[in-house]
């Protein structure tokens, strides 16, 4: 058996230990990415082998928290893929306008940039006051950052460009105030947003939603876990409800596909039809 095969055993045991000890289930995450993250962590920790990580994490919760932080690297941005937001405005907003109230779920919201982006769009379309927005993630530390809504001022230039390309009608700086090198998101945007911890793998349906956004989360799962989570979304949507995925995620090869209509193939917008 070579070193790589031994490492595979070690990774299996590590993920099993995390699951049994702390309840976080990473066993069906796409292996190549999770392995990179484990090896990155191992490198930084100074421990010789992955099995040493397992030994330590079983009794040392603080150590596990560090691993968790590494497993949930949450790279995100405001108005990521501006065309996506254009497509939402054109394809989905007209539907939502016909509802007296709207429930929206951001699953895997990370530090919240995507949540505030959609909130801005809803505001400009005059829909914000009708909306109840749930934003969930597996990791509480990113959720508290999302709740604060404080981002680096240095990013705002790029986000302003994204916002304009996304079809924003106003001046992007209306939505935050600068303080030293931070940009603090306007509190009026947070009014209807509830941030909550929710694990897509082990927790159940969150409630019935008119619109579910789950972008750049499914790519981290293996196919069987993707199916399971898509089923959860299916169960959370009423007839006519919308599901929005990341720009490289698709329902095309999945079992739930036949229950959805592709509203915009490029933007990955789907509508539940049966």
């Amino acid at each position: 058996m070579n070193e790589r095969e031994i490492e595979t055993i070690e990774i299996n045991l590590l993920l099993e230990a995390i699951y049994q000890r702390y309840g976080y289930d990473f066993r069906r995450y796409a292996r190549a990415s999770i392995k990179r993250r484990i090896l990155n962590f191992l490198n930084k920790s100074g421990l010789p082998h992955i099995s040493d990580m397992t030994r330590v994490l079983l009794r040392d919760e603080a150590f596990f928290k560090e691993i968790l932080k590494n497993f949930t690297i949450s790279v995100t941005e405001m108005f990521r893929d501006p065309d996506f937001y254009q497509a939402i405005s054109h394809e989905i907003i007209p539907y939502l306008k016909t509802y007296p109230f709207i429930k929206i779920w951001h699953a895997g919201c990370a530090t919240g940039e995507e949540v505030y982006s959609l909130a801005i769009l809803l505001k400009e379309e005059g829909l914000y006051d009708r909306a109840t927005i749930f934003a969930t993630d597996i990791y509480d530390e990113v959720l508290s950052r999302a709740k604060e809504g404080i981002y680096s001022l240095a990013q705002m230039q790029k986000y302003t460009v994204n916002y304009q390309k996304a079809g924003g009608h106003r001046s992007f700086s209306d939505y935050y105030h600068a303080q030293y090198d931070s940009a603090i998101i306007d509190t009026s945007l947070a009014k209807n947003i509830t941030f909550a911890k929710h694990n897509l793998v082990t927790d159940s349906v969150f409630g019935e939603m008119h619109l579910i956004m789950c972008r750049n989360v499914l790519i981290y799962f293996n196919s069987s876990l993707q199916e399971q989570v898509l089923h959860l979304f299916y169960d959370s949507l009423p007839h006519g409800g919308f599901l929005c995925l990341g720009s490289k995620e698709t329902l095309r090869f999945t079992k739930v596909n036949r229950h959805f209509k592709e509203v915009d193939g490029q933007a990955k917008l789907y509508q539940k039809i049966s």
């Binding site: 796409a30 292996r31 190549a32 990415s33 690297i73 790279v75 995100t76 790519i219 293996n222 490289k248």
Partner: peptide, 21 residues
């Protein structure tokens, strides 16, 4: 590899994508 995504090959010889740093 698509722009703005890492491209990885899994042991079962399928691709996977990531938006890690």
């Amino acid at each position: 590899a698509p722009a703005n995504y890492h491209l990885l090959i899994e042991e079962n010889r399928t691709f996977s994508l990531s938006v890690d740093e």
